[in-house]
């Protein structure tokens, strides 16, 4: 019986038979459909996904004419901390554009949180100005709302991670609501400074990393940014396949935020005025790549079907069907990309 090389969600190599791959594809599709209450992939789509997974060759590519654009999260830092090449960030922007062929990159600081960036904004704007002078592609500025940074002892509000285990639910909720106000103020401040420095857009990365209040901070900041700087693009990136209910009752536009999956997250991002939505689907390290990518494509297809703005799927370590390993293996990365674009109808990565 012939077997195909693929990987598990932790990146380790594994050989699977055709039957095992097909079985995992079906299980992954059903899991996503069940959790998200969304349609399953068609048999034809699952057959094509099987074909992508089992294609010969270490890497695969999309059909000619189906190429999509790419954006990034903290892209200008990655040559330094992933490849250990010490490089000034505006130069990394140019290498990304002129050597690697990136369609856009965002400049981010190592601390990668709007609260931290606010205090060093005078160091960040010159990097953006220099990059804008030399790059042709859109250059964004990116950071995370990172609501947790606003809790004591690092910030002004009570720490809900300490209050919740004590069952002080009301106090924990009030603290999160207070933190939202601080985060929105900081995000809008940084966006304004970057707009003045020539930024083409602002990347609100990993919205919801601290739960539903964190996601709300991203939405409210988007509203204010679009109101004050209508020309400044906003990329709204999610933190997970569903919004973690750290608060549990927060609503936006009449919808409870906690528990929303990508096809509903994108509608809130749209309503707030975002220009690009970054969909996230988490990788399960104990399951195979066929299971993970089938699940991811099912979520993404529902998201792109619902969206009226471009959807750029997160395809990095531990998300988008990519294994949770330090160096994502190129064999499954290219297969994930092809599947997300050709079956999931992703507008970008």
């Amino acid at each position: 019986m012939s077997e195909f090389f693929t990987r598990m969600g932790d990146g380790s190599g594994v050989y699977m038979t055709a039957e095992e791959i097909r079985e995992d594809i079906l299980k992954g599709v059903k899991d996503a459909a069940d959790r998200g209450k969304i349609p399953e992939l068609t048999q034809e789509e699952m057959d094509y996904l099987y074909k992508i997974i089992t294609m010969p060759g270490n890497i695969v590519g999309v059909e000619r004419g189906r190429e999509v654009v790419s954006t990034s999260d903290s892209g200008s830092c990655k040559m330094t901390y992933h490849a250990n090449i010490a490089m000034e960030r505006s130069m990394a922007v140019l290498v990304s554009e002129k050597v690697l062929g990136a369609d856009s990159v965002d400049i981010g600081n190592m601390d990668y949180s709007y609260k931290a960036v606010k205090q060093i904004i005078h160091n960040e704007t010159p990097v953006m100005e220099l990059a804008q002078l030399n790059a042709v592609m859109p250059v964004l500025y990116g950071s995370m709302p990172n609501l947790g940074l606003y809790t004591k002892p690092d910030g002004p509000v009570e720490n809900w991670s300490e209050l919740l285990p004590l069952a002080k639910i009301d106090e924990a909720r009030a603290a999160q609501e207070e933190a939202v106000e601080h985060a929105v103020r900081d995000i809008v401040f940084v966006a304004g400074e970057m707009y003045a420095a020539g930024a083409d857009g602002i990347n609100l990365d990993t919205c919801g990393a601290s739960g539903d209040a964190d996601f709300l901070a991203g939405l409210l900041a988007t509203e204010k940014i679009k109101e004050k700087y209508p020309d400044l693009g906003v990329e709204f990136g999610a933190a997970g396949e569903f919004v973690l209910g750290m608060h549990g009752k927060i609503e936006y536009d009449g919808a409870k935020i906690a528990g929303l999956y990508p096809h509903k997250q994108v509608k809130l991002a749209e309503k707030a005025g975002a220009n690009i939505f970054g969909a996230v689907v988490n990788t399960n390290t104990n399951m195979s790549f066929p299971w993970n990518i089938a699940r991811t494509v099912t979520f993404v297809k529902a998201c792109t079907a619902a969206a009226e703005i471009p959807v750029h799927v997160n395809v990095g370590m531990g998300v988008g069907g990519i294994p949770m390993s330090e160096i994502p293996p190129i064999d499954v990365v290219t297969r994930a990309d092809k599947a997300l674009i050709e079956i999931g109808k992703a507008d970008g990565l």
């Binding site: 959790r35 919740l164 285990p165 069952a167 639910i169 924990a172 909720r173 739960g211 539903d212 569903f242 919004v243 973690l244 209910g245 750290m246 608060h247 549990g248 906690a258 528990g259 929303l260 999956y261």
Partner: peptide
């Protein structure tokens, strides 16, 4: 784990 119950409820059920 499915996003149908949230942390406050989980804490209270543990209580």
């Amino acid at each position: 784990s499915r996003g149908e119950v949230f942390l406050p409820e989980m804490i209270l059920s543990a209580e």
